[in-house]
Design a protein around this nucleic acid. Structure first.
Lengths: 230, 230
DNA sequence: GACGCAGATATGTACAGACAATTAAACGCG
DNA sequence: CGCGTTTAATTGTCTGTACATATCTGCGTC
């Protein structure tokens, strides 16, 4: 148990005041010099604490105007979409991936120009089908994917391990299972499915576009948001 | 156009190197003293830039070992769940809220002990039903809610404006519409619905528990993730 | 009263130095 | 060669100081 840094302590104490409602939105909180005197430290130390709070969106800072507690606008929550293989393993279930189809072809999709590798497969948790996945991968951006054994490793897992960093956009919706999808997921046609579509870029160039269909009875997405998200 | 701060410029340049793949995961990036010499500035300035990157999760820093580019593990995306009223208004649609039922009672829900205000209603976008909402609000945490006119203002909107800050957990799943739900949303029974359940706390005390049912054909959730999330 | 300018005030950013904490790597010893 | 110890590299944090920058406040002028 090492003592937490002073700036961290200050940050926490102010955060607690805000979260508990002691300083409601709109409150002007003490200036840096005042806090500096209160804690008996240098201004940089206080500044670090306040900057962190501003970064987390709990306060707004303006020169001369001071630091005021921000009004919450939206519940912005952090949704961690881990790779399915990792997520299932983390829950202590047996993960399997079955590749149904893969082919390199020219893309007709406006969001994924050029040649792409197209894959289709099913993710299994404890031997029960969890998600049916359709994916396009830009071979221009990730030529190495052609050498990967995608029957062994799911393309999402491979990409996570080999493509350095990404930007992504996710769309979540629901639909009734088509006969083909119902067959793949071993559910009845018309059963509700959760559909997650994710487009991923790397430095503004599209890398992959994936649509995952989950049997709603077997899966749900969970996200947690804490104001202390740093 | 004021010149960006030097520490910000350094942060950006390193970030660009990482995002472009120039410094793949696992790369050890130059130490603080080296960067300090390169940019001709103080160590504090470099430290600020690197700390920001560490906070964003792009790099991992360890004493003696140095700063290394992190391996992406999960796609952690920021999902902004704005209040429905705001979201619909932002899309340029007409928003309406119709309160169907509200009653104060003792809660039997294990997650929301004590007396609660229970509300049910429907959110409309351009006069078409968008979401059916069931909600429990702790009257111990938010006694003022009893005086609010919830036929006029949706409870979510009221809470966003009056409760300072929150932690929340969201669950997203899908289900087929029950006859009652189908009637409220003006869809056919059995049609797929997107279900969002959100529990909200304020300083560890539960504030509200809400379940929103969306007609999947009329709504989808969109979330965007940039590696530069600060 | 309306307008504009000057000054006060608060934050933004940076510098230079210092010491602490951690831990990888080199070293020494059996 | 294996293992414990020392060394040194690297980041973590803080202290003061300094100047820049934005903007609120109040005063003076017309």
């Amino acid at each position: 148990m090492t003592a937490p840094a002073l700036s961290e302590r200050i940050r926490r104490e102010i955060e607690a005041k805000i979260l508990s409602g002691g300083w409601p939105p709109g409150t002007k909180i003490p200036g840096e010099v005042a806090l500096m005197a209160q804690y008996g430290c240098a201004r940089m130390t206080v500044n670090k604490a306040l900057s962190a709070l501003a970064g987390a969106g709990l306060v707004t800072r303006k020169r001369r105007a001071g630091t005021i507690v921000a009004h919450p606008r939206a519940q912005s929550m952090v949704l961690e979409i881990t790779d399915l293989a990792g997520e299932i393993a983390a829950r202590g279930q047996v993960y399997e991936w079955r590749l149904l189809r893969h082919a390199e072809r020219r893309s007709d999709h406006p969001e994924m120009p050029g040649t792409v590798l197209e894959t289709e497969g099913v993710h299994y948790a404890d031997h029960a089908p969890l998600a049916f996945e359709q994916r396009l991968i830009s071979t221009a951006q990730v030529p190495e994917i052609l050498a990967a054994d995608l029957a062994q490793t799911a393309p999402g897992t491979w990409l996570l391990a080999h493509v350095p960093w990404t930007e992504a956009e996710n769309r979540i919706t629901a639909a009734a299972a088509s006969p083909a999808l119902a067959h793949a997921l071993e559910i009845a046609p018309g059963d509700p499915c959760l559909i997650v579509t994710r487009r991923t870029w790397r430095a503004a160039a599209p890398v992959t576009l994936v649509t995952q269909h989950f049997a709603a009875t077997r899966h749900e997405l969970v996200a947690r948001f804490g104001a202390t998200n740093r």
